[in-house]
Design a protein around this nucleic acid. Structure first.
Length: 254
DNA sequence: ATGTCACCTGGTAGGTGA
């Protein structure tokens, strides 16, 4: 079983690239962030014609998430139950017996801002809800754009990024607390090339210089850990003429 | 080099968010 996550930074712009990627990789589950589409604009017909069911949850201009699956998805939940949020950031569903939680974690802008506090509160809300969700669904995958680089291996220049957004102790502490619920960062179950990133800034020729961060993560529950066969980042779509700033991350489960 | 991209409002550019 193949699962994947990709922050597409506008599905309206990236739909052709998504369809190309789906055709090439045939994931059983594909989750998307930053669709930036209201629900009436979601390209349901194109995605279903390609062979995937779709669930989506969007809003105007910003955010927006979707969950595509070869099998029909069930028990769909939008956003975080028990945490009031005006933004469309989470969609959850069960596919082939696995609970899939697709999260677009707030960016947080910069430490000390209101957006940073919102990010921390949001992560607390996610954790509180996941306690119950994991109890109800031991086979669970939490994946998406976390906007947090777990540790210095995940940062192109740890000195320059120290204390900056995506790399603060507060954010990393929240991520550790999520993982402490009984999750594991699937990417680090395997030997990986050094300087593996999932996001490169559009500015400063960052991709050409391979200056990025690994902030797109796939966390699997303990019940699934033994089934994980591979976890990789596919840089190829970042080389497209008009790329997303993020690359897809893939997980293979037995 | 705060050097790009996407989307909005309200235009034929400026603001916001990432």
């Amino acid at each position: 079983m193949k699962l994947a996550t990709w922050n597409v930074n506008s599905l309206a712009v990236r739909l052709p690239q998504l369809l190309e990627w789906l055709a090439a990789h045939q994931p059983d589950v594909m989750v998307l962030q930053e669709t930036k589409l209201t629900d009436d604009k979601f390209p349901q017909a194109e995605i279903e014609a390609a062979g995937w069911h779709a669930q989506w949850f969007g809003q105007k201009t910003y955010n927006g998430v979707a969950l595509l699956s070869k099998s029909q998805a069930g028990d769909v939940v939008r956003n975080i139950p028990g945490f009031s949020d005006e933004l469309a950031r989470v969609i959850t569903a069960t596919v082939d017996g696995i609970r899939i939680v697709n999260a677009y974690v707030p960016n947080g802008q910069a430490p000390g801002t209101d957006k940073f506090e919102y990010k921390l509160q949001w992560l607390r809300g996610l954790r509180d809800w996941l306690v119950d969700e994991l109890a109800a669904h031991p086979k669970l995958v939490l994946l998406g754009d976390f906007n947090i680089a777990p540790d210095d291996r995940d940062v192109c220049d740890p000195v320059a990024w120290a204390g900056q957004i995506h790399c603060t102790d507060e954010e990393r502490d929240q991520l550790r607390k999520l993982i402490a619920l009984g999750l594991v960062d699937a990417f680090r179950l395997f030997e990986q090339p050094p300087k593996s990133w999932s996001w490169w800034d559009y500015r400063n020729l960052a991709f050409r210089r391979n200056q990025g961060l690994r902030i797109d993560l796939i966390l699997v529950s303990e019940a699934l850990k033994a089934s994980v066969q591979a976890c990789t980042i596919d840089k190829a779509p970042r080389k497209n003429e008009r790329p997303s700033d993020h690359a897809p991350v893939l997980l293979t489960l037995a």
